[in-house]
Nucleic acid binder design. Structure first.
Lengths: 219, 219
DNA sequence: CAGCCATGATCGAGTTCCATTCCGTGAGCA
DNA sequence: TGCTCACGGAATGGAACTCGATCATGGCTG
């Protein structure tokens, strides 16, 4: 299985949160504009203060249009989150294609780099870290992102670079994803460009943890 | 400086978010009841869906009473969060007193244990992980919790157990706090008793990371 | 190719719900 | 008894959300 296959957009048959699938083309643009607007508003006023009216106005649409695509305010944020996940995966795929990693940790670094790049460039990208725990209350473990994601990465690392696979690898990757998300988000909490100390430490920790300094087999 | 001093309630001159300091005693009970109610509601309906009316009703109070103590809905959540932090510190202090750790990592374990115990027993404790990032948008780095907390822990570890202090230790502790919070919260995301795998892995990672397998001086 | 029409898309006034205010009433305290 | 603190809950304002009217679009038809 090629790296691109795992992280490309094809692999995303995401659960639809939109009310009505857009048929005409202009709708796609509308939907996209709504999310763009939501992203900007999130960065400006925060998650709590965002209002559907703000999103509509910013997108040059009416309130009704917002509710045509999303059942409620929270769903808009979830839509934004899904798009962010999608873009992250695409960026990872791009970086993998460009870097042609020869070791597993170079591949991991591509993932970290993708995250950092998007955090810097993409408005509202912080939604990723935010929405995780809130969603947890309503969805089920099977469809959890970090777990699902860990599975994908496990497949890549074991098939492409010969890391010993199995449940242990998946678990370790889940732990790694959790830590990386947390550290990188922390890097951007007080610094819009990302605190390099945290980013560098994150890379080092990922490398060492996955190398095996840690965990059941650590020695 | 004794461990208890650092983690006892005295050390908490927290920023008041309440509108009016209660004068009479019954008020203290009211305030506490409000937070208890908020904690339950948070666990039941989530952060997004909580309403001031729910909190008031659950606490057997009127809407007006909620607003007597808190300026707005968000402030209630912040109040809940501050109380959770306070209780966490007290629990750490208790555990330290009971365990009388002889090594720095036993002390660290007390912190992890305290977190797990409270997550299991305290309604709404997940507010801790949640509120962090949201606050970030409005408050300033200086008063950040993980940083402030890291400072306190650094003082304890270096003074009591002779860990080499300095900025490096503080930074490493900040990273550790971030990772531990993330892993422990993850442990409780799908399992109300806490997934033991994540808890155990968290303990191991904290031990190894702080021992120095990681970081600038890792070898 | 012009016109027609079924259907998707949009709008925004209207409705409902919720956050927040405010003043009248009741409870502690001297 | 009077004074201040605390409480209640109707009233206000604003934001979430609905819904029927209206406007595009793109295919079909002659």
């Amino acid at each position: 299985m090629a790296l691109i296959d795992l992280f490309g957009e094809d692999s995303l048959a995401q659960g639809r949160q939109v009310r009505t699938e857009p048929i005409q083309q202009r709708s796609a643009a509308r939907l996209s504009a709504l999310l763009d607007a939501a992203a900007e508003v999130v960065d400006e006023v925060g998650f709590d203060r965002i209002t559907t009216a703000m999103v509509a106005e910013r997108a040059g649409a009416s309130i009704g249009t917002v509710y045509r695509y999303y059942p409620d305010r929270v769903a808009v944020l979830e839509g934004l989150r899904e798009r962010a996940v999608l873009r992250f995966r695409q960026r990872v795929a791009d970086n993998l294609k460009a870097a042609k990693p020869e070791s597993w940790w170079e591949a991991v670094d591509c993932g970290i780099t993708a995250f950092v790049e998007l955090y810097r460039a993409e408005p509202g990208f912080r939604i990723l870290h935010f929405a995780d725990r809130e969603r947890a209350q309503t969805s089920t473990p099977g469809e959890q992102d970090s777990g699902f994601f860990a599975n994908q990465i496990a497949a890549v690392l074991s098939e492409e670079f010969g890391l010993s696979g199995g449940d242990d690898l998946i678990f370790r990757l889940e732990v790694a994803v959790e830590m990386a998300d947390s550290l990188l988000s922390r890097a951007f909490t007080w610094n819009s460009q990302g605190d390099e100390r945290f980013i560098a430490e994150c890379r080092r920790i990922m490398h060492d943890y996955l190398t095996g300094f840690y965990g059941p087999d650590a020695g």
